[in-house]
Computed example of a mutant assay.
Amino acid sequence: MADDVRTHYELYPYPHYPLLASVRRCDTYALNLTAVWTRFNGALPPRAAQRILIAGCGSFSPYPFSLANPHAAITALDLSERSLRRARLHCLLHGRTNVTFCRGDLLDAPLTGGPFGLIDAYGVLHHLDDPLAGLTALAGRLAPGGVLRLMVYSRYARREEESIRRAFHLLGITDPAAARRLIARAKPGSRLRRFVEASDEAAFDNGLADALLHPRVHTFRVGELLDLVRQSGLEPLLFAHHDALEDVGLETERLTALEASRRSPGNFILYAGRNVSGPCPDDRGSLVMLNPCLSRAVAPFNLGAVHIAPRLGAATPVLTRPERALLRGLRSPKPWDALSPACRALLPAYREALFLLQFRR
């Protein structure tokens, strides 16, 4: 039982967004179960897999997941009752009602059951005593073909924070007020002062606590992360951090070269799967459909270009009026053979961005 981590989040639920903070549904497109499943299986998810688990949901994630998946059964699991209360209230204030909230440890299988078509473990595994045991437990709850998204701290992206966090631990600093007193005494230009001035997290107590006062933190090199994934029985499918290459092998080589000079593009975001079938192999005979989260984004009343936040490591296509007009015709599945040449030209880039879904009949 992770009592120290639970206590930390009871004191400092994270993130601490205002309860009225909202997101556009189009910006949740990469959380849509149908889109993610189709990307890696080339087929729509079966009914038994239309369930989502948010493992370590914190105080906010259930809201965008519910927005992205209004008809899916979503289970939000967290150690902290205070985080769950805030997440539940956020959902209620925004009319999101398809989430079941559950307090407990992700290692406790009876709490959540399964199987799930999509599991999210964003910023969770690096706070466990045994990250491999945690990932293995989650992998066991995936349906065949299921996909798990994870984010863990990169060794070199987290280097400054970790040095400060360890120093605070040695000094016995355990609360934001004491940390801010020390920060106020830090010399201008010092490592501590530079970090705090550059960090958005450090501007509020809950963010400062999560960044610098957390009781348990692991960091990973890319090879360690991939070993963890494979030992859990999962297959790495796609890196999704900033500037990530689509090919896992090429991105691993790029990250390894960066790490040789003690650099990193940021923390690691990775999709991993269990017995996935792979993307739709052929165009002919397939169906193509708009990501359901983008229905309003392609509506005719949007007069200007629509910019959608990048979620898979690369910039997303800008939806201009002509492109939106083409995409509106794909709100329901359409045979590839019936697509116009203009739609077929859009397909590769839009499929890669998860804007369009292509799947077998």
Rank of each mutant, 00 (worst) to 15 (best):
C280A: 06
R311S: 08
G113W: 01
L287W: 11
I119Y: 08
N206P: 03
L225W: 11
P144N: 08
R191E: 09
R361G: 03
L92F: 08
N302Y: 12
G329C: 05
S190D: 03
L150G: 14
G313S: 01
V306Y: 02
L347M: 10
T252L: 15
H241N: 07
L171A: 11
A211E: 13
P265A: 07
A297C: 10
R25E: 13
A133R: 15
L118D: 02
A76Y: 03
L234M: 12
R311F: 00
L326C: 10
N267E: 08
L303S: 15
M151F: 11
D205I: 14
P341W: 02
T316D: 12
L171D: 04
T75M: 03
G146L: 04
G58I: 11
T256S: 13
L150Y: 07
A43G: 07
F65S: 04
L93M: 15
C57I: 08
F116E: 05
L319N: 00
L106R: 15
L255C: 04
R321L: 07
V147H: 07
L346R: 12
T320H: 14
F355G: 00
L245K: 12
L319Q: 02
P131I: 03
G146N: 09
W336P: 02
N267G: 00
A43E: 13
L312K: 00
I269V: 05
G113D: 14
G117L: 03
D120L: 14
L312P: 00
A143M: 02
A325H: 12
L357M: 15
N206G: 12
L53F: 02
A299R: 11
G140M: 13
E323R: 15
Q50I: 02
C102F: 01
N291K: 11
C343L: 06
L84E: 11
L326S: 03
S340F: 07
D337H: 06
R194N: 13
N41H: 04
P115A: 01
R24A: 13
A121T: 05
L125S: 01
T219H: 04
L270I: 08
R263M: 03
A314P: 01
A203I: 09
D282L: 09
L287V: 00
L238A: 11
H16K: 05
N98L: 10
L111G: 01
L326K: 06
R216M: 05
E162W: 15
P341H: 10
R344N: 00
H90A: 06
A48L: 07
L132G: 09
L84R: 11
V152T: 06
A297W: 08
R321T: 10
P176I: 15
W336S: 00
R296M: 04
G285N: 07
A184E: 15
R25Q: 11
R185F: 03
N41F: 14
S332Q: 15
G273M: 01
